[in-house]
Design a protein around this nucleic acid. Structure first.
Lengths: 252, 252
DNA sequence: TAAGATTTGTTCGTATGTATC
DNA sequence: GGATACATACGAACAAATCTT
């Protein structure tokens, strides 16, 4: 639906108008990721706007992960499936300006992760269980240096992120994965977790070993309880770092 | 950090490069929402790129809510605070291509909302409690038509969204608010909830009345339990609609 | 390998709309 | 109202990527 061509800048910017129209189009026609969108040339005379304006519209959509463009013959714009990483980055931008403490993150983790563990009990394949055990190899022995400690913590978070990807519930999985990513980011870039603590290391490792067993056994009650205790332990480990907040844009 | 001017399209598109650089800049300098960014002209010779490229870069950032531009004298580009609504829309784009059932949403609500209720007990001001009661006026009497039923359900969701905005924990508040928004959207645009059910209406209303009392009394255990039951009831109300999923982009 | 075709990517010059003073 | 400063929009030409022959 082109509106009358006019030079200069109208109130609602023209690129935004085009972007909205294309979004609407995708929903109306029920387009799927990978489906082809009209090319630049086509859009130019469909909307009666210049190339630059159309391109700005495509950038608007590209930033949201809704379209992908390719050059060359057979190239053009396509409906893009918003990736998990991009959704993470976009959401992280919002929290960049909020004040999120480590404690806030753990309040949510404590509520959600046991729920996921319980839901996953008895539903994982042998391969999936094996891949979880494989991640745990990174922290078979206690860390001796602060560097090692951080590396192990990142691996331990990867364990949770990996578990989250197995969840049937994409909403639950996304939230959990998102928090694991934030904590990973903080660990790597803010150099958290300085003092190795063998006692807590052993506890956390035992929790995860027991959790895998409970998942294998299909014992959802036990999986819930173990994950709950695991999260409480992890939170206590972080209590003195609670002032640290996210102050960094995540990579897309 | 300008790179050498060169015509045509390199692998990583130039607008993306500029957008990344500006993002980095904001973080490095610790810029806050409202702070001024360099104008078009300045960026053009700072990066050695054309006007069009710079503008595409700004669109990339604008779509993410990271910059806002204003025309006229004193205008230009400014760091933008990503709004909650925008974050909602961006995240909803991700879930548009996932399969989220109503049941999935309730699994998360059941885990999170009681947690929030417990955390809020005894911490709300008289005004805040009053504003919650005010929302409840929209469903003082049972609905007779499907239309009324939907309107009441939207109001009831607004109750939860409103409560979420009072949460100290911005992460928890966002997740809960997000889910309420999705359900509202489904109710309005997919015309859910056709059959008025007086029994469930009374139950839900009583829950919320009791919840407000528990919040006022600072009884977090009771607030938790009431919210939990409230969520379970709400889920049972939706069980036959579980196949419905989000198939719509949210407004920004 | 190489040439040609197709489509997006980028530039430059120019003109217009908008808000402030 | 007029001047000014700024983003907004247009159009034509050229560069680069990538597929086909």
């Amino acid at each position: 639906m082109p509106d009358r061509p006019k030079l200069g800048g109208p109130r609602r910017s023209r690129p935004q108008t085009v972007a909205d129209a294309i979004k609407e189009w995708v929903v109306e026609k029920g387009l799927e990721p990978g489906d082809r969108l009209p090319g630049e040339a086509e859009l130019i005379d469909q909307f009666g706007m210049s190339k630059g304006t159309i391109r700005e519209a495509m950038r608007l959509l590209q930033a949201q992960g809704l379209v992908v463009t390719k050059t060359g013959p057979g190239g053009g714009s396509f409906v893009g499936k918003v990736s998990r990483d991009r959704a993470h980055a976009l959401l992280a931008n919002y929290f960049y300006f909020q004040n999120i403490s480590i404690n806030d993150i753990y309040q949510v983790r404590i509520a959600l992760e046991p729920e996921m563990a319980a839901a996953l009990a008895g539903k994982l394949s042998a391969e999936q269980l094996a891949s979880l055990s494989a991640i745990m190899k990174a922290y078979e022995t206690p860390a001796e240096t602060a560097e090692e400690e951080r590396a192990q913590h990142v691996a331990s978070l990867a364990f949770h992120a990996h578990l989250a990807e197995f969840a049937d519930n994409a909403l639950l999985g996304f939230f959990i994965d998102f928090m694991a990513q934030i904590l990973t980011d903080l660990t790597v870039f803010r150099r958290l977790y300085s003092q190795p603590n063998h006692e807590l290391w052993r506890k956390g490792r035992d929790h995860q070993i027991n959790l895998i067993q409970a998942l294998k056994d299909g014992d959802s009650t036990r999986a819930w309880a173990i994950m709950r205790e695991h999260m409480e332990t992890a939170r206590s480990l972080m209590e003195d770092q609670e002032a640290v907040v996210m102050k960094r844009f995540m990579a897309e």
